[in-house]
Every structure is written in C-alpha cells, then in structure tokens.
Write a protein that binds this DNA or RNA. Structure first.
Lengths: 253, 253
DNA sequence: GCGCAAATCAAACGTTCGTTTGAATCCTAA
DNA sequence: TTAGGATTCAAACGAACGTTTGATTTGCGC
C-alpha cells in the first residue's frame, strides 16, 4: 500500500508538472502521458501515488487550498478580533479574501502565478467532479466571508451582496486565467510572460482591487434603490447611475 | 461536395445540439457520438456537413457572433452619430456592448441563455484554436469599443481602461457561465434553471450593469492617482478608496 | 422514368486515452 | 546478510476518441 512514507521526488514532481500542464492545457487537454513524460517518471506512477487522474487533480488543488483557506480564515479572525464586534470595512474584507489569493501569486513556494492561473481557469471548468470538489473545499470560507460582507454593508440587500461577490469572483478568476480576447487582440502572449513572473500578481492586485471595491459599493439597481440610503451610494453623477438608462434601438428583434 | 444546398434539418439540428452539449460539457468533454446520437443523425454527418469537430465548434459560434458583432457595431455607430462628435457616456458604451449581449439571452432565436453560458465558459477555454478564432471574430468590435471607452473616460489612462475592460469581461463571462462556487455552496442548481429561462438574462442585466459601471469608474490605484482629476473619482469616502490600505499580517511567508 | 449529385448510413480505420498487471528494482529494518 | 514492503518499470488492457470509406438511399431537374 502507498501513502505510508511516500518518495518525495516522484510524488512532488508529478504534482508540480501536473499543476503546470493543467494550467496550460486544462484538465481534459492534459493526458497522463504528457504528465509522466515531462516529470520523467513511469506512466504508472500517477496511479500508484494518487490512484487516478481525478484524484491527482484534486491533490494538485488540495495542497494549495489548504494554505489558502487557512490563511483566509486566520486573517478574518484577526480582523474581527481587532474590530471587537464592530463590522469590518468592505475594503478589509476584500483585502483579506482577494489579497491573500494574490499573495500566493507572488510566492512560487505557494504555487505562484501558475497555480493562480490554474485556479482561474478551473473555476469555470464544466467537469462535475471538479465543481463538487471546489464546493466542498470552499464551503466554510465562503460562508465566513459572506457574513462578513453582510455586516460590512448593512444597507445593501444580502441577495445583492451575493450577486456582487459572484461578479468579483468572476473578475478575479478571469483576470488570473489570463486567456483574454483583449490580450490576444491587443497582442501579447500571456502564457510565458505572466505565468512565471511573480510581480504580475502585484501589478494585477493594484489594478483589480479598486475595481472590485467600487463594484461592490455600486449604487443599487433602479427597481431596488427605493428605500435604503445605502452606504454604497456614490456622490458622483457625471453619468447615469444604473442600467436601463438610455434605450437604444435594437435591430433583428 | 457539400455546402451547395445543405439540408436544413440535419445541418441545423447538429448545430443546436452541439451548442447545448458544448455548453454543458465543454468542448473536450463533448464527443461526436454524444452530439450525433442526441441529434438523431448519423455519426458521419458532422464531418460531412462541417468537416471536423473544430470546424463545428467554430460554426456554432460563427452563426451567433455574426449577429452579435453586427448589432454591437450598429449600436455604436448610432450612438456616435447621435453624439455628433462628442464623447459618449461610459454607461452608453457599456449598455451597447454588454446590453446587446444580454439581449441575446432573452431571445431563444438568438441562442438564448444556452449560447450565453457557452460563450462565458468558452472565453476561458485553454484550447488554442478557440482562442485564435475568438481573437479574429472579436478584433474589430473590441477595437471600436476600446476607443469609445478611451474617449468616454479621457482622464483615465488608457492602459487602466484596458485593464478594467478586461475585468468587466471577466465578471460578465463568469456570471454567464453560471458555474460558480457561490451557487453551489448557496445551493441551487444553475444548469437547469438558468439555462432555459430567458428572464434570467434580464435579471442578470439589472444586477451586473451597475456593478460594471461602478468598477469602470473606480478611483485610480494609489500610485497612479497623483495627477489627473479623473472623472472616475467617487465622492464617497466611507471606506478606504484603493488597494494596499490596511496591511494585515500574513502567515507562512 | 432516368440520371446524378446530395445526403445518409453501417462499419471500420488508426490513434490515444486512463488504467492495470506482474515482474524487476530499491531501500530499510531486523 | 537477508527478508519484505515500497517503489519503479515495460507492456499490455479494453474503451472511447475523431475521422474515413464505400455502398445505399433520397430528391429533383431533365
């Protein structure tokens, strides 16, 4: 039986190579033979050490999410302890949740940008076993941060906060995945540059955090803005505040 | 040789089924046999009518993007003509770009939510041929809307606008894909409910457009906020305005 | 009714997939 | 030194993949 002492060489080299190949080619686009040949191990090594390809995929994430989840909980605990019962600021919650993530990208020992891009891509992966696995891994953390956001934005309906949490996850995972039409059209190759550069995470962080915070605190959509003064209200009025503002003629109805 | 008269039954039924299965299982997760058996056509029909699986995937998108691209250009033309040389408002640009997309989700004849979810998932698909195909299909439209945003936000650095365009695409595609950790944890099945409900697009639109607009007009990140009064400045100051605000102790450095 | 191209069909092509097997090594504790 | 479990290895497994073939059927102009 395996899993008693485990050889550090083969075991970890498989994980590292699989992480990088899953990032570059996706789960279904990466074969066992690609992994084992690049890791210079025998084809049977994956099944010996991990049991199956699916289990390998889960282990690739498990070793990273272990740190990420704990870090996120520890930071939230610290913030809430320091607040002594008072609600946190939205920026504090976002910094703890997304800042922790982006910090992984700066440290190759935590997976670096390779893992971050893999995570971004995998969050929209259709495979069932991946989604149920993620749901289990994320359940506790999401629950904690949901309620932290509820308390941080008491005037915004909770359902609205959930939508915006959803949108923020999208911005982040998409930006991390780095496979964007804009990048291709604008014309630089994200695969090599961003995947290996730890400074990419810092650059991204400076750009995306203000975007997320502003989105989270956006004015409420028109049909809901009636009652509730809402701490999310923006004083700026240089532009129409919400959807359905200017109707433009659609063709091909 | 094919492509002279084309039988409407088989040809279109393959496209419709492929669209739905690619949406549900992804490109690599959908086999020719799944498509042909569900469409009740012979296995060879796909290669006869489209040439290959890749060409089928491209055609699934081409017939939808044809409408989407033209509609987006027409709307932008109309807006700019009405503005008579003046810059558009950011909300107008977003409404034309993303509103047009969401309108597809309300109309099953344009693909409905099935196509929107497929589009959302595919934008982060790693396969090379998909990305290069999208780049070609989107090139003109992205270029036009890029410059419309540049003009709409003259005080925001163009590089910053591109980043935020990127983030907005992420929010949208992620929200459309509908495979979210939040949804799974919060616990409802997106596959059946959202995929067939045209009203889902309208609900999503009301939620996401204010989020996107606020993000687009967020205050600039700290190291860049020095000069430029920026039409993106928000009057609200109930919270720290940008990233790197409160530093929180990270562990496991 | 005939002729011919378009379309459909069953069957098989060669390849690659994830996984399993059983023997050959390696390493360590007795 | 020697057992014995841990690990590696070459080889093969059946299944599923996308694609191709060649015969058959269909539909329409003549």
């Amino acid at each position: 039986m395996p899993d008693q002492k485990h050889c550090p060489d083969t075991h970890d080299r498989i994980l590292d190579v699989a992480e990088r190949l899953f990032m570059a080619n996706g789960y279904e686009g990466t074969s066992m033979r690609m992994i084992t040949s690049e890791a210079e191990v025998n084809l049977a090594a994956v099944n010996y050490h991990f049991g199956s390809k699916e289990a390998l995929m889960r282990e690739v994430f498990r070793r990273r999410l272990l740190w990420l989840n704990r870090e996120r909980i520890v930071l939230l605990d610290a913030l809430e302890a320091a607040a002594a019962g008072a609600p946190l600021k939205p920026s504090q919650v976002l910094e703890a949740f997304f800042g922790t993530l982006l910090r992984m990208g700066e440290d190759p020992a935590l997976g670096g940008m390779v893992f971050l891009r893999l995570l971004g891509r995998t969050l929209t992966e259709p495979a069932d076993f991946i989604r149920t696995f993620f749901a289990g891994e994320y359940a506790e953390v999401v629950e904690r941060y949901k309620h932290a956001l509820f308390r941080a934005l008491p005037d915004v309906p909770q359902e609205e906060i959930l939508w915006r949490f959803h949108f923020m996850l999208g911005s982040m995972s998409y930006a991390l995945a780095g496979t964007d039409v804009l990048e291709i059209v604008t014309g630089y190759e994200p695969g090599d540059a961003m995947a290996t550069d730890p400074a990419a995470a810092r650059r991204l962080s400076a750009r995306v955090m203000p975007f997320l915070l502003a989105g989270l605190r956006a004015p409420l959509p028109a049909p809901l803005a009636s009652l509730s003064s809402s701490s999310a209200a923006s004083g700026d009025s240089c532009d129409a505040p919400s959807g359905a503002s200017s109707r433009v003629t659609p063709s091909h109805a």
